[in-house]
Design a protein around this nucleic acid. Structure first.
Lengths: 197, 197
DNA sequence: CAACAATGTAGACATCAGCAACAATGATGT
DNA sequence: ACATCATTGTTGCTGATGTCTACATTGTTG
């Protein structure tokens, strides 16, 4: 039909890329497999070879999202130097930045997590969060954070970041307040933990 | 066709009720207007008289959600007695309970907020959050919380609650940890604020 | 009781996800 | 080299959906 090779070459990657853009710009609801195929220049049945159904595409999107999140977190921590609190602030800021830049993707990432056959997704998530866990561990080692299961220690802080991001994407807080809010939250957190240590 | 009166009597309410159930049990994605009409026993075009499109139904759901949330918050605060901290803990617990019981509805509530013509929705939201604001004001009056714009003072705490709820619905935290997590967060919050006052 | 507004019905259309039969291409083994 | 097979795309079909329009029924009001 169209003047293009029968085989696309790397359809899967192209679909993921275009899907990611659409999800970011219009939300996951408004993503159509057929429209996606059109945009990439391929017939409506072609995506099925790579993603058996809509959900499979979302899962793949979520997985690559975790990969990217992990990268950004790692970069932020590395750029923050050696100290615990700078690293904590940097990673928190990076997380919230990611979450607000791509809210729909974040939603996919978490929506997929409590599904069944999501082992690859879980692994990707774990890799991403390992960065944060390391920071918490450092805080505990330096005696700035209370002892105990580091995952649990970090949970409240993580929840707060997630919530701040939600408020921004929900329009209850405008983006200008973002950094200040994150700073406040971390200050509260560190102060609360230090007193309890 | 079917053996029922031509006019339903209160279709709008029936639709909202059934829609709310479906959204709670299956998520907003899987709500179909036609299926809804079928369940209520009416032709597929009938809902259109009350909700011009899908989004209008969601907006109405969100609005009634805020009403219910406000009620639950008020009841929780009233039942908690007169003291600030009991009220704070009660309202926070009530919020998180609401959010985890009906995650899809909560999503609708916040997704609709940053839309345009949502004045009724905004008003409903404001009514609901007024309860929380009162509690913050009390805390400030008693000198337990730092001074300043009460909305901003409560924001970090509110974000934390929102985030905790998100972690639970996302399956990253199981429901048994919920109350403990909320307690922790409030303790952190109060301790952090007191030190800053 | 006769218009009129409100509410519900029926059918049409475009789109979608999922499926299956078929076609073109690429890879493998001999 | 070349026949065979797996991979990857294409086309057409089915059932369902949201939205739209023309029409039917009922309730209301002057």
């Amino acid at each position: 039909m169209a003047d293009r090779p029968y085989h696309h070459g790397n359809l899967r990657a192209a679909l993921l890329e275009q899907a990611e853009r659409t999800v970011r710009e219009q939300g996951a609801d408004r993503l159509s497999l057929r429209e996606l195929a059109r945009q990439v220049g391929v017939s409506h049945g072609a995506p099925r070879r790579h993603f058996p159904d809509r959900q499979a595409l979302f899962d793949a999107l979520a997985e690559s999202g975790f990969d990217r999140l992990g990268d950004e977190l790692r970069r932020a921590v590395d750029a923050a130097g050696e100290g615990f609190e700078p690293r904590l602030r940097a990673s928190a800021a990076a997380y919230v930045r990611f979450a607000t830049r791509d809210p729909a993707l974040l939603e996919l990432m978490f929506a997929g997590k409590h599904r069944e056959h999501a082992d690859a997704l879980d692994a990707a998530a774990e890799r991403a969060f390992a960065v944060l866990l390391d920071v918490i561990l450092q805080g505990q080692a330096e005696g700035v954070l209370e002892r105990g299961d580091p995952e649990r220690v970090g949970l409240v802080l993580f929840a707060t970041m997630q919530g701040i991001a939600a408020l921004v994407t929900g329009g209850m807080v405008d983006e200008g307040q973002l950094d200040g809010l994150v700073d406040d939250a971390i200050t509260h957190f560190v102060r609360g933990s230090r007193a309890a240590a």
